[in-house]
Amino acid sequence: MTGYAVEIEDVAVRFRTKKRDVTALRDVTMRVDPGEFVAIVGPSGCGKSTLLKLSSGLLAPSSGSVKLLGESVSGPRKDVGYVFQKAALLEWRTARKNILLQAEMRGMPAKEARARADELIEMTGLTGFEDAYPHELSGGMQQRVALCRALLHRPPVLLMDEPFGALDALTREQMNVELRRIWQETKTTVLLVTHSIAEAVYLADRVVMITARPGTVAGVIEVNLPVERDYGKTMSEPEFAKATRHIRDHLGAAAVAE
């Protein structure tokens, strides 16, 4: 046991296309403590999402090693929850049935799964929409369903790949506030990929900055904000301004240099 929830050690990912080899990630080392909220920011196409795929075993690194909860990752892992930018809901299932898909695939006891689903529905504010079909739900509501589905089996690690990228700015802020609260309630480890610097700083304990092509870690900053974060108040904290500025300098400068 290493004691880390996620441990990415000197990892490189290369893709072979017909014309040439593409290096998506190189020299990436990253460690996430259990219960920590880590945000990964970077420009589009820098391989942020690849990091989540590596952690969950959906993708194998070309070199280096990946460990999840102390175990070497060698294939898709069941002990994660995954949320994508698209809600990826089954349109023939109601919100509740979509959430329960997780339980069906895992063969969880039905009674326990239903109780847990009810709990999550309440926690995420989906009460009253349990029996709605995805096309009857707004983007924010759909993403809540996806979040419930990802949390149903109480995963020790929650992987979120630009989960609010498709939402409008106001909905996104609301979802940020709720995610922060849900994280505090569930105490799960969260890896959040985003390209919103404000989102990363508001939500995370640490922010990992990735540069573009080939993606590599440009730096890591600790966010020294209090655990209880009121949205408006946090936004106007000097520490918030300092952190976002730091990230902008880093990623902005890197982008210009490229």
């Binding site: 795929k53 969950s56 959906l58 898709p76 892992r77 069941k78 994660v80 929850g81 995954y82 994508f84 698209k86 990826a88 089954l90 898909l101 997780q102 695939m105 895992r106």
Partner: peptide
């Protein structure tokens, strides 16, 4: 089928 749906299914141990 949405490839993400299939990836999700893989992480569910389906």
């Amino acid at each position: 089928v949405d490839p993400e749906m299939l990836q999700l299914s893989a992480t569910m141990g389906a």
